[in-house]
């Protein structure tokens, strides 16, 4: 297992009021993303535990694009990865961001 962590400054706070969301499942080629609204509005943190070691550069690029595209200020994303491909990672992050945009019930 490899642990990775990426911290980004964000342009704006993530929309919505939801405190917590989880999407995906830890399986071969898949991952789970837990999103929590626990950070200052200008920050975003992505912490990853991955079964596929040695892909730090790819993660770096995927997450930089995600933060640029969604500006998820205030959110911490925790990822358990079962060796997902970058397109699946992007999709799950986007799904998690969309869930957080919903208003909390």
């Amino acid at each position: 297992m490899e642990d990775l962590s990426f911290r980004h400054a964000t342009r704006q706070r993530a929309a919505g009021t939801k405190k917590l969301a989880v999407i995906g499942v830890v399986a071969s080629g898949n991952l789970e993303v837990l999103a929590e609204r626990v950070l200052p509005d200008s920050e975003c943190l992505v912490e990853i535990r991955t079964a596929a070691a040695g892909f730090g550069e790819v993660w770096d690029a995927v997450i930089a694009d995600f933060v640029k595209g969604y500006s998820p200020g205030g959110l911490r994303f925790s990822i358990n990865d079962g060796g997902a491909r970058p397109d699946t990672v992007s999709l799950r992050l986007a799904q998690a961001a969309r869930l957080m945009q919903e208003d909390d019930q």
């Binding site: 297992m1 989880v22 499942v25 830890v26 789970e32 837990l34 535990r49 991955t50 079964a51 925790s78 358990n80 990865d81 079962g82």
Partner: peptide
């Protein structure tokens, strides 16, 4: 699971 170097799931 960590003893087997396997990924965990939060729940």
């Amino acid at each position: 699971l960590k003893l087997f170097d396997l990924p965990e799931q939060f729940d």
